[in-house]
């Protein structure tokens, strides 16, 4: 088991009101799985991803990553976990605008304390993996949206993390480019990476072996991608045809 969540809750206090972004979520993900997380806007998908990615700490519940209990770790320990175990991919790419593609991909390795030569080698390799070996010295504003997301994926891959987390990675891309990116994830899945991917596009989720649907901070469905992602038979049939 790579990750195990047990009754995870995340409450936000806004003024006098308490928002239950996650209201008791429990599930497990095995090594090598590719899980889509779907649900309506505001259902708690991002909150869940942030908790899994150790960017956020739950209000209650327990969370094991790689057999380690993450729930009570210190801020420094969590930073190191993010650096070593997690590869985060965001909807808005979250690249440093003044750094080149290579510089962006190198960044997590700097925080790991690797020497410049090794960093550069590994960053080049990661960019190669996402098909950007000819864009190494470009800055984000010199790249297309799809290329930016590839840089972000390379940055997530470069540390060889246990888990790739992608929060709506195609949300800012046109559908053709989005499909390319999903294709890249498929490829990474085949290579053995463990992936959790948030998407609001059922057709994309349907391509994942497993999908989890959440609503109002609770898991309402967990099963094979097409069954969870697509509401009815016709949708499923259409997706199968494409």
């Amino acid at each position: 088991m790579l990750i195990k969540l047990e009754d995870i809750r995340r409450y936000y206090t806004v003024g006098t009101e308490v928002v239950h972004a996650l209201n008791g979520v429990s599930f497990e993900v095995s090594r090598g799985e590719w899980v889509a997380i779907i649900g309506q806007s505001g259902s708690g998908k991002s909150t869940l991803m942030n908790v899994i990615g150790c960017l956020d700490t739950p209000t209650a519940g327990r969370y094991w990553l790689n057999g380690k209990d993450v729930s009570n770790m210190s801020d420094n320990e969590l930073a190191d976990i993010r650096n070593r175990e997690i590869g985060f991919i965001f909807q808005t790419f979250q690249l440093l605008p003044r750094d080149t593609a290579l510089g962006n991909v190198e960044l997590p390795l700097i925080y790991r304390g690797l020497r410049a030569k090794e960093r550069r080698e590994r960053a080049r390799h990661a960019l190669d993996q996402v098909g950007l070996s000819n864009r190494v010295t470009h800055r984000p504003n010199e790249l297309s949206g799809g290329q930016r997301q590839r840089v972000a994926i390379a940055r997530a891959l470069v540390t060889e993390p246990s888990l790739l987390l992608a929060d709506e990675p195609t949300g800012n891309l046109d559908s053709a480019t989005g499909l390319e990116i999903i294709g890249l994830f498929e490829q990474l899945h085949r290579q053995g990476h463990t992936i959790c991917l948030v998407t609001h596009e059922p057709t994309l989720a349907a391509r994942c072996p497993r999908a989890i649907r959440i609503s109002d901070g609770l898991i309402v469905k967990d099963g094979p991608g097409p069954q969870v992602a697509l509401e009815n038979r016709t949708e499923r049939a259409r997706a199968a045809a494409t």
């Binding site: 990615g53 960017l55 801020d75 420094n76 930073a79 190191d80 993010r82 650096n83 070593r84 985060f88 979250q94 690249l95 440093l96 960044l107 997590p108 925080y111 790991r112 940055r155 540390t159």
Partner: peptide
């Protein structure tokens, strides 16, 4: 702020 968020997400500690 965002840059700080990115760095923290990638493993920068507070001290960093």
């Amino acid at each position: 702020t965002r840059e700080i968020g990115i760095r923290r997400a990638l493993g920068a500690r507070r001290r960093t």
